[in-house]
């Protein structure tokens, strides 16, 4: 039941909060992590990550809520809390949640003509589910934002208008 709530929440966040299913996909090669996010150009977006190249019962997943606190032409800065979980653990009576983290990240749009292509870097203090031990994670990856270029500009314009006021 608990897993169902989580999965529902993930879907709810990804496809409801942002109105339409505009997604970005990310790959973090050093840790073999695949990510799928709602529109990363919005003020608030949701990030879902899954460890790949791993055994079925060891596929750790993460969900986090991000807030873009600075959105610029070529770079966004964001922060957000999240938690790591493993659905398989529930089937063997282990704690579903692995731990919690806060991610500080940046997404750089290195090619002016293709702002959908982004490089991302995240710094993420992580603490286990008993809140008694943790470590600092770093992640470097690349991402593609599946929204039209015009929408990327619209989001930026909106942000600039708000700032101008």
């Amino acid at each position: 039941m608990k897993q169902l709530i989580y999965i529902t929440l993930i879907g709810f966040n990804l496809f409801n909060i942002n109105g339409k299913a505009q997604i970005a996909v990310t790959y973090i090669p050093f840790q073999s992590i695949f990510g799928i996010s709602s529109n990363v150009e919005k003020l608030m977006w949701v990030d879902y990550k899954i460890e790949t190249n791993n055994f079925a019962s060891s596929l750790d997943m993460e969900i986090s809520q991000k807030i873009n606190f600075k959105r610029k032409e070529i770079v966004n800065y964001y922060v957000g809390p999240g938690f790591s979980f493993n659905p398989a653990y529930s089937f063997v009576d282990l704690p579903f949640t692995n731990g919690y983290f806060i991610e500080f990240g940046t997404r750089i749009k290195p090619i002016a003509k293709f702002k959908n292509i982004q490089l991302m870097f995240e710094l993420s203090p992580y603490i286990n589910n008993k809140l008694n031990n943790g470590y600092l994670r770093t992640r470097l990856g690349f991402s593609y934002n599946f929204i039209p270029k015009s929408k990327v500009n619209n989001e930026l314009n909106k942000e600039n208008t708000v700032n101008a006021r």
Binding site: L9, I17, L43
Partner: peptide, 15 residues
């Protein structure tokens, strides 16, 4: 934004 914030609040409360 307000709608998003409310949704977030509900989601994290359930979490």
């Amino acid at each position: 934004c307000r709608k998003s914030f409310c949704n977030l609040l509900i989601n994290y409360s359930v979490c």
